[in-house]
Design a protein around this nucleic acid. Structure first.
Lengths: 335, 335
DNA sequence: CTGAAAGCGCTTACAG
DNA sequence: CTGAAAGCGCTTACAG
């Protein structure tokens, strides 16, 4: 057996290969990485140097086995293809890597039993779960999650910490803005049935409509899927509803409505005004730009990661509420 | 110490806890999961039953340590926020989970040294890497990847297998379509400097322009970033270029141009025609829908995963070329 | 088909 | 500050 050795040993670098080369114990090498202040500075430096020379990379699976912590965060999204999720994924990824964790992504593809099974499998491999998958049935969720620390995004389930976005103030403001612009008959295009966010937003708009001093008439349409197509198809009914302004569940849906209204020969904001929610990429690429309620993606992600580490540490944090802000842009005009 | 025991043992389920309960060896339990046909059917059934009863989930990190394969695929994307990536991520995720692997996501956030470091770290934790990050410097890429099996998406680097999309035929077709519609002065809005896909597409359009029998004059603008804003800002120059049609590097950029042209008082397709590339979500949500060259996301993802497993198995597959198709939609009209 | 045993690459309590 | 040793939860060659 003629092992090729060029310069350093060409064997796989481990704490042992480093220890051998330096003639010290593997324990010390291990400590140099896991608890650097426990080892002599000189020694540590030599370890780091030969680690670099050998191209050593810590094997996280092995560490995970020894410590019981994998350094992995499972991130479950409803549908990565929905423009709401990419900015959230990015924020979570950033926050995770800041705390030296990596993220395993699971695209739940709209929930269903398969998603529940995959979630169950995932939950066993990670330190914690961040779930942004509003459609997963609560029971499946609880069952799949088991005892894995979990935090929910934009959804509240009894007993599971969450970070949610309270848009009621912003939606009020949005409604008031429409009133100022002279709108009186306003259509609320409700989001998906069973979506926590959808019912929150619906309630917020309803209560605004009831409490406003103006003589507002709220027409409701839905529930509908939160997709462009759904919005597009709703446009006909919207056009004939007599409403001059639309408050849509989210931007994605709102963009579809704008497209569909165009098909009906109606232009925004001249013929109709519309307001979305979330401020996703589509909101900015729409011409004119969509008036909307912004979602603080960056913070949603950061807080989710922070909450998760609190749960992992044994805490029982409550629900964190962030809030969106109304941004009047190009799709709201005088009646 | 009063351990609570309700029904089954409340200890963590492992192959040992199952073995103990069934009074068999852990080896057999292990085989029941890793190589089921090696164990007696009856025995296997009992194992599976008590595993379910105990809520056992295989610890993949432990398996990984033992086998040297983690069951993890690292997926590196340039920028998850760019609409090109979500469909790709989804396709990869699907294909991975079909072969019982999970994906670890790394958002390279436009490359840079940080991304290279993160990649290096990631590469040590996964069985293989799928890299869709055109900006990562080739050297960094090669260094970070080391000996980890890797496949590139939409980029070709000597010595690394890849799956790319050859759009030249579709771009020719797109060009011909513009000519048919009466366009003669056509502006090529080039993508980012250093992007492999951008140079491919640029070359394809140039060679089409040279070879076409029509009297086409190709005006070039760029390189520019592939973002909405970049497209938007390019619109002024485009408007004054005298070109009646634009072929843009990708859809994202094209949508920005449409927005910017609108700002210039120019409408699409009446005043200008435009064609994008990739067929991302934005292409469909634009009003009118964007004429574009479609990218076969699903296949891109599937093939990448397949290629990766070939590399892991010791093969040295070459580059796989898929191809896009021209889809004439609403943004191309008569001059 | 099954079991005993060694090993994967770390960590960490314990003893120095 | 350092080392020897046990252990994390699996897999697998080897012997039966």
């Amino acid at each position: 057996m003629n092992r090729r050795r060029t310069g350093g040993a060409r064997v796989k670098a481990t704490i042992y290969s480093i220890a051998r080369e330096l003639d010290i114990s593997a324990s010390t090498v291990s400590r140099a990485f896991s608890r650097p202040d426990m080892v002599n500075t000189k020694v540590r430096e030599r370890i780091l140097a030969t680690a670099a020379a050998q191209g050593y990379e810590l094997n996280r699976a092995a560490r995970g086995l020894a410590t019981g912590r994998t350094g992995l965060i499972g991130l479950v999204v409803l549908d990565i293809t929905n423009p709401f999720f990419p900015p959230l994924v990015r924020a979570v990824e950033r926050a995770a890597s800041a705390s030296d964790a990596s993220v395993m992504l699971l695209d739940a593809e709209s929930g269903g039993q398969k998603a529940a099974d995959q979630l169950k499998r995932l939950s066993a491999q990670v330190d914690g779960l961040i779930v942004a998958s509003p459609r997963l049935a609560t029971k499946d969720l609880q069952a799949a999650v088991g005892s894995t620390p979990t935090v929910l995004v934009n959804r509240a389930v009894r007993g599971i910490p969450s970070v949610t976005c309270d848009n009621s103030a912003a939606l009020r403001e949005a409604g008031d803005h429409l009133v100022e612009l002279g709108h009186r008959r306003i259509l609320l295009l409700r989001g998906p049935a069973g979506s926590w966010a959808a019912s929150q937003r619906t309630n917020a708009v309803r209560s605004w409509a009831q409490q406003t001093s103006a003589d507002v008439e709220l027409v409701e349409l839905g529930p509908v899927e939160a997709t462009y197509e759904a919005g597009w198809h709703a446009a006909e009914a919207i056009a004939s509803s007599g409403a001059t302004a639309i408050m849509a569940f989210d931007d994605y849906l709102a963009c579809g409505v704008v497209g569909g209204l165009d098909e009906q020969g109606l232009s925004v904001p001249n013929d109709r005004s519309i307001i979305g929610c979330d401020d996703v990429l589509l909101a900015r690429t729409l011409t004119p730009q969509l008036s909307t309620v912004t979602a603080p993606f960056e913070e949603l992600g950061t807080r989710a990661v922070t909450l998760l580490s609190e749960v992992s540490a044994g805490g029982a944090p409550g629900n964190q509420k962030l809030s969106g802000e109304y941004a009047a842009r190009g799709t709201t005009g005088r009646v």
